[in-house]
Nucleic acid binder design. Structure first.
Length: 403
DNA sequence: AAGCTAGACAACCGCGTTCCG
DNA sequence: TCGGAACGCGGTTGTCTAGCT
């Protein structure tokens, strides 16, 4: 008697809690649901390895946890996503990528699995149909321009794969929408051009925040170098945390602005993550005062990718004098230099239903330096993070960052 | 009616992180 | 400090169903 492939795999890779051959798999029955509900209502959630045995289930503990968190939890919504949720997902995805757990935490009653499935089945296609690459959140035509500027595809990593697929879909299905979302595609109502702009704007802004996205749309090789050198920042450094917080702030802020203003938040160029008097991040509770533009608030401590590049290049330098200069410069550089404006950004069509010229004018992100005058970039980052947690103490309680 | 296909969503898997003895 | 267990997350697969041919 041969074991099926599944059973063989089970024996080899299943964790200790699930390595029993008689563990049941597949769709849960109402009876099983009732058992797990009864158990959790009595004992509470937790210690999942013990749950199956105590609840009388022939299931893996991991499977029980998944069933509870994704389906049985009483606080879950089971109705379809609202347009507001949809827009929030798109914005957050543009800002932080496929961090489904974080995105789901911004949507009460939704799980990461819900959001992920909804994205994969609905939103990806919608964006593609609108001529937007759902990974980079940039119009395909813009990406083509970018690739031309970059002069190759090698730096684009795995995004190119989805680009190929999604761009193909877009071309095949609704090529007429490419970059010209008028009339709106099916399924998108009057928020479409707003959304389309939103997704590209947030994307471009977020890429200023989170190095590691598709290279920005400029042909500045120095920028390319810095983007490459920082490409892994988003994985495990404090930049990641800070950047995500800022990105979420940005998106939340954008939502507030969009809700409160008749004009979209990207009105007149760029939305800034600007510093109000003492804080580097706008308070989401005071959206009207924080939806500022470059012309309204200008920090004296601006910097750009180029500024940062100088630092990084010099840090790599073997010249001690140059390195000293870098240390001096870095005292004011915390993060996230602005998008470099580039005339290439302005090469986009001028007859679009929405004006792309402001896209090229985007992102002059400005972040103030820390007050502590840290002597290195890393120290500055840590100081900045500490300051931010002082400003937003509730973040320390947020399980999505410290779970 | 049968077969095929695509969409929706539930569930699983592998891996990294955290917890705890 | 270390190692194993537990947990959490993102990617992927499996299953069901509706619509079409």
């Amino acid at each position: 008697m041969f074991l099926s492939n599944l059973d063989q795999k089970d024996k080899m890779v299943r964790p200790p809690c699930c390595d029993k051959l008689n563990v049941k798999r597949g769709i849960w029955t109402a009876e099983e649901d009732a058992k797990i509900l009864a158990y959790i209502s009595k004992h509470g959630a937790g210690n999942w390895t013990a749950v199956p045995k105590k609840a009388g289930l022939r299931r893996c503990g991991k499977s029980c946890r998944l069933r509870w968190t994704n389906y049985l939890r009483p606080d879950l919504k089971h109705d379809s996503f609202t347009p507001q949720e949809e827009e929030m997902i798109i914005r957050l995805h543009a800002a932080i990528g496929s961090r489904w757990a974080i995105i789901a935490q911004q949507l009460p009653g939704r799980t990461d699995n819900d959001v992920k499935n909804y994205w994969n089945t609905k939103l990806r296609k919608k964006l593609s149909d609108m001529g937007i690459d759902p990974v980079t959140h940039k119009p395909f035509s813009q990406i083509l321009v970018d690739y031309g500027n970059i002069g190759g595809l090698s730096k684009c990593g795995n995004r190119i794969g989805s680009l190929n697929r999604d761009m193909k879909n877009a071309f095949m299905s609704k090529s007429q929408h490419l970059y010209q979302p008028s009339p709106p595609p099916p399924g998108f109502s009057n928020i479409n051009s707003h959304l389309m702009m939103t997704t590209t704007m947030v994307s471009s802004q977020a890429e200023s925040i989170i190095p590691g996205g598709l290279l920005n749309n400029n042909n500045n090789t120095s920028d390319n170098m810095i983007m490459n050198s920082l490409g892994n920042y988003s994985t495990n450094s404090s930049v990641d945390l800070l950047a995500q917080l800022q990105a979420i702030k940005l998106v939340t802020e954008a939502s507030n602005c969009a809700d409160n203003m008749s004009a979209p938040f990207y009105n007149e160029g760029s939305l800034l993550l600007s510093s109000s008097s003492s804080s580097s991040l706008p308070s989401s509770s005071s959206s009207s005062s924080t939806c500022s533009t470059a012309g309204q608030e200008k920090s004296p401590l601006n910097f750009s990718w180029q500024d940062f590049l100088l630092d990084e290049d010099a840090l790599l330098s073997t010249d001690p004098q140059e390195q000293n200069n870098v240390v001096e410069q870095s005292q004011n550089v915390i993060l996230l230099p602005s998008h470099i404006n580039n005339e290439n950004n302005n090469t986009t069509q001028t007859n679009n239903t929405f004006q792309r010229t402001d896209y090229g004018a985007v992102p002059s992100y400005e972040f103030p330096a820390t007050s502590s005058g840290a002597s290195s970039f890393v120290e500055a980052m840590i100081d900045r993070e500490n300051e931010m947690f002082l400003e937003f103490p509730d973040l320390l309680e947020d399980p999505c960052f410290y779970n």
